[in-house]
Every structure is written in C-alpha cells, then in structure tokens.
C-alpha cells in the first residue's frame, strides 16, 4: 500500500479538485483508493452531492471511536472509498486542527487501510503546519499542485522546505511530483509561470499532465460530482485526470509489471 498527501502552502490551488478527481481516475483504473479529508474546511464532503452526512467521517470517529469502517463512505465505484471530515464545530477549530494533525490518528487510519487499499490519499489544508505537518509525518510521498500564477510559485519553496524538514526527522518521504494547475496557456502570465516551472525543475519532478483552468470544474463542483461523472460522456477535461492517474500510478508504484503483462494483440 502507498500513502500520499496532496500538499500546498498556498490555498486555492486546486488541491481538493486534484485529490478527488485523481482518486476517482485511479479507482477507475482498478486501484482501490481511500481518500481521507484532513482539511478542516471539509472540502471533499462539500464537493460531493449525496448523503455525505450518513458517514460520520473523521470528526465522529475521533469523538465516538468505534470501527473506522462505520465512518467511511462507500461510493458507486467499489474501488473508491471516502473518509470525509464530517461536521466540525468551528468554534473549537484550534482543537480540531491539533486533533487532525495527530500522527497517531493518521497512522491508525493507515493501519486500518493496510491490506484493503492500494493507495491512501490525504487531502490537506493549505499551509505546512497542523494536519499538513501530520500528513508529512506518515505518508510515503507528496504531490504538490502549483497553480499557474506567480504567488503559487513564490510559496513553493516553503512547501519544499516542509518536505525537507520532514525528511530531516528521519522520514522516508518522496516528492511524487509537481502538477501545474489552473493553466491557461493563452494567458501570458500563466504561460510564463509554466515555463519557469519547466525550466527550473527536471522532467522527472514536473508531471506531464497539467490541469487546465476550465469552467467545467465549477460546473462539476456545483453538481457535486467528479468531472468524470458530470455526464455519461465525460467532458474532455476529465481525460486530464486519466492521464494524471497513469503518471501517479507509476510514481506510487501501483503499476508494477507482472510476468503476464505485455503487449495485447488487437487480433487473435
């Protein structure tokens, strides 16, 4: 089993969009995936229509205990399971920030998932502290979305430092990659930022896939679905996450070639 955190110092870069749609695409490729929301905003639950309240999520599990199985949400895709945040009392946010940052809690989730899932993905809040720090203490790798605008790139050093700091504490942590988000190559600033990222970092770090700025994401958010489920024939941008899933699959070691794997002839 592999564990990964989607991490960014800056908010609004598309972490939740990437986490949700990537997990959906990976599940479609046959990997069993647990998506865990440790962002106090509870954005995963807010992004999905349906009875997310029927699962208590992390909050109720922390408060009431019991089997984690009772607090997860099974989806229509059997390979995709969600552990949403649940309903959080905002007047006690500091306590929840500490609770969600608890390394022991996150390890208990990983222990529960071991053997049942190929990948556990943590959607973290913006910033390198609190739950994000907790995730860095337990995951195997980190996926860093960088929005194609100047401020996002300016905050990237802070994210890289947080990864380095975690490694200095003895963590075996890998950078799964940097994924450009909200790209709009017809806009000069976005194009310049993409070029800065491409010229600064080696190809093995920057993922080939870039997530474009597309109104379809707003539409999918309004409908409360991953873009791949927006309609029976998904919009073109949904294919972006299939591409991203194929890249992440390799980087997370989910696609080890077996002895029986090889070219499949089209004709008998």
């Amino acid at each position: 089993m592999h564990s990964m955190a989607v991490l960014s110092q800056k908010g609004g870069v598309g972490k939740t969009t990437v986490a949700l749609n990537l997990c959906y695409a990976l599940a479609k490729r046959g990997h069993s995936v647990l998506l865990v929301d440790i962002d106090p905003q509870g954005a995963i639950g807010l992004s999905l229509a349906g009875e997310t309240a029927r699962a208590g999520g992390l909050v109720r599990w922390i408060e009431e205990g019991g089997p984690l199985e009772d607090h997860v949400l099974r989806t229509k895709l059997p390979e995709l399971v969600l552990l949403p945040l649940g309903t959080l009392e905002t007047d006690d946010l500091d306590r929840w920030m500490r609770a969600l940052a608890d390394e022991g809690l996150l390890r208990r989730i990983l222990d529960w998932a071991e053997g049942s899932f190929d990948l556990v993905m943590f959607d973290t809040p913006a910033g390198g502290s609190g739950p994000s720090q907790g995730a860095l203490n337990v995951v195997d790798s980190v996926l860093v979305p960088v929005q194609a605008e100047p401020l996002a790139l300016r905050t990237l050093p802070t994210t890289l430092r947080a990864i380095t700091a975690a490694k200095s504490r003895g963590r075996h942590l890998r950078l799964a990659g940097i994924v450009l988000t909200m790209t709009s190559m017809r806009e000069e600033v976005a194009l310049n930022i993409a070029q800065e990222v491409w010229s600064t970092f080696p190809p093995e770090v920057v993922l080939e896939t870039q997530v474009p700025r597309d109104p379809v994401f707003t539409k999918a958010s309004a409908e409360g679905v991953p873009v791949g489920l927006l309609r029976r024939r998904p919009p073109p941008v949904a294919a972006v996450f299939d591409h991203l899933a194929a890249e992440i699959e390799q980087r997370a070691g989910l696609s080890e070639e077996g002895a029986d794997d090889g070219p499949i002839h089209l004709l008998d």
Binding site: P157, I193, E196, F201
Partner: peptide, 26 residues
Amino acid sequence: RSISWTDPGKLRRLLEQASRDEVPVV
C-alpha cells in the same frame, strides 16, 4: 526577469534537498 520573483537556482537546491534520500538530522 522571473515574474514569480523566485530564484531558479535556489528552487533547484530546495528541490534537491526535498528529493534527497537521506537528509542529515540537523
């Protein structure tokens, strides 16, 4: 001029540190 004000050399060094397999405990 970098429109993000970032220093590519510094970013590369940070990336090297973040990607290094073993980082000495400091």
